[in-house]
Amino acid sequence: MYTGYLQVVVQTVITFFVLLTLTRFLGKKQLSHLTFFNYVTGITIGSIAANMVILKTIVFIKFLISLIVWCALTTLISYIALKSGKARTLLDGQPTIVIKKGKIDRKALANTKINLDDLTMMIRQYQVFSITEIDYAILEPNGMLSILRKPEFQSTQKTDLSIYPSAPSFIPIEIITDGKLLPRNLLEVGKSREWLDNELKKANVKTIQEVLYAEIQPDGNIFIQKIE
Rank of each mutant, 00 (worst) to 15 (best):
Y2W: 15
G4Q: 07
Y5K: 09
Y5R: 09
L6W: 08
Q7C: 08
V8A: 08
V9I: 15
T12E: 01
T12R: 00
T12S: 09
V13I: 14
I14Y: 00
I14D: 06
T15P: 02
F17S: 06
L19P: 04
L19R: 00
L19W: 04
T21H: 12
G27P: 03
K28L: 06
K29T: 10
K29Y: 01
Q30S: 12
Q30D: 08
L31S: 07
L31G: 09
S32H: 11
L34Q: 14
L34I: 05
N38M: 07
N38R: 02
N38E: 13
V40E: 03
V40Y: 06
T41I: 11
G42P: 01
G46E: 02
S47L: 12
A50Q: 11
N51E: 07
N51K: 10
N51R: 07
M52Y: 08
V53T: 10
V53P: 06
I54G: 05
L55H: 15
K56I: 02
T57W: 10
T57F: 11
I58R: 12
F60W: 10
I61S: 13
I65V: 15
S66C: 14
S66A: 15
S66Y: 01
L67E: 04
I68A: 07
W70K: 01
A72W: 09
L73W: 09
L73Y: 04
T74H: 05
T74L: 10
T75S: 14
I77E: 03
S78F: 05
Y79F: 12
L82V: 00
L82Y: 15
K83M: 03
G85A: 09
K86R: 11
R88F: 06
L90K: 04
D92C: 13
P95L: 02
T96P: 07
I97W: 01
I99W: 05
K100W: 07
K101Y: 09
L109H: 01
L116R: 07
D117T: 10
M122I: 01
M122N: 04
V128W: 06
F129T: 00
F129I: 02
T132E: 14
Y136K: 13
I138D: 08
I138Q: 03
E140D: 12
P141A: 10
G143Y: 08
L145V: 09
S146C: 06
K150S: 08
P151Q: 08
F153I: 08
Q154F: 12
S155I: 09
Q157W: 13
K158W: 02
K158P: 03
K158S: 13
S162L: 15
S162D: 15
I163A: 13
I163V: 13
Y164K: 14
P165E: 08
P168L: 12
P168M: 09
P168Y: 06
I171K: 01
P172L: 03
I173G: 07
I176G: 03
T177P: 07
T177R: 15
D178G: 12
D178K: 15
P183E: 12
P183F: 01
N185I: 03
L187A: 15
E188F: 07
E188H: 04
S192M: 00
E194L: 11
W195G: 04
D197G: 04
D197L: 10
N198Q: 13
E199I: 03
L200G: 03
K202C: 06
A203I: 02
V205C: 06
T207S: 12
I208G: 00
A214F: 03
E215W: 02
I216N: 02
Q217V: 06
D219S: 09
I222D: 04
F223T: 04
I224M: 05
K226C: 06
